[in-house]
Design a protein around this nucleic acid. Sequence first.
DNA 1: GTATATGCAAAATGTTTGCATTTCA
DNA 2: TGAAATGCAAACATTTTGCATATAC
Lengths: 159, 159
Amino acid sequence: MISVEEQLKSMKQQMMAKGYKSTVQREATMRVLLEHERDHMSAEDVYMRVKERFPEIGLATVYRTLELLTELHLVEKMNFGDGVARFDLRSKDHEHMHHHMICSICGEVEEIKDDWLTELEQRVKREYGFNVSDHRLDFIGTFSSCKHGDCRRHCETAS
Amino acid sequence: MISVEEQLKSMKQQMMAKGYKSTVQREATMRVLLEHERDHMSAEDVYMRVKERFPEIGLATVYRTLELLTELHLVEKMNFGDGVARFDLRSKDHEHMHHHMICSICGEVEEIKDDWLTELEQRVKREYGFNVSDHRLDFIGTFSSCKHGDCRRHCETAS
DNA sequence: GTATATGCAAAATGTTTGCATTTCA
DNA sequence: TGAAATGCAAACATTTTGCATATAC
């Protein structure tokens, strides 16, 4: 596992290589993303976390930064159907998009870190002539533990 | 294949069985959905189509009807990341959610009607104790035909 | 007759944009 | 220095809500 500082440096390099400037606001945003790698934060979530340490930042800047990072494929923009976009870092050791299990009882989104789709992607290519560059796989259902009354974790935070 | 009238009747019955009333607005909305079974229409799309035949209908009614039908599992609410919810009928002969190929050149959303995930759903259950009731599988990429300049179909309509 | 559904307009939500000012390379 | 980035507020798009009226059962 690479350290936060190293990852930050690498991200900055990728940004500057494409002609974008490195700013304190962008660094602060990336730092928040690094510290919440798999939290599926909304833009507002990211904004609030960045604001804690950099109170003068504007929401628009966070949106613009997240858009930029998405463009650079450094973050992944997701949508779980609740009307808000969510963002996660695409770290070096998780090149491929991961899959999700979305619990309809507690709202928790859990990850499956493997890539189960390489085979199906070949099939798509073979049968439909479609070249897959990305994929999204979400399972909707219930965790056994939720069904039995004791939710896995932070049920109340899943607004 | 069941006729439109039969399907409509069945949908109305399901609605009334749960205590909801059958109204002309709801019928008109369902009819539009039946005639555009796999068109991934936004609420606005549905609204405009219903309005053609029932001009006094309000957008809010369409939203409320689509919400109700989603609740009854008669329609499927989707989200392709462009900020608008899209709706399709869940017809009898396609009980399971289908998969999508989303072309990043022309924006076209094409369907894969098979269910490729039964095996993976068992694996989720086995490895994570998660009981899948639904799933969503989207492939993002490009059709060979789009790459070669001639887009598959109605590229300009994919706003 | 009564609870439910509708239409309209207003509000709420999430996101984008214009523009004057600041900052980075 | 000059182009790019920022912060703010206003604009925007989509969806939801309140409420008086109409409708289905």
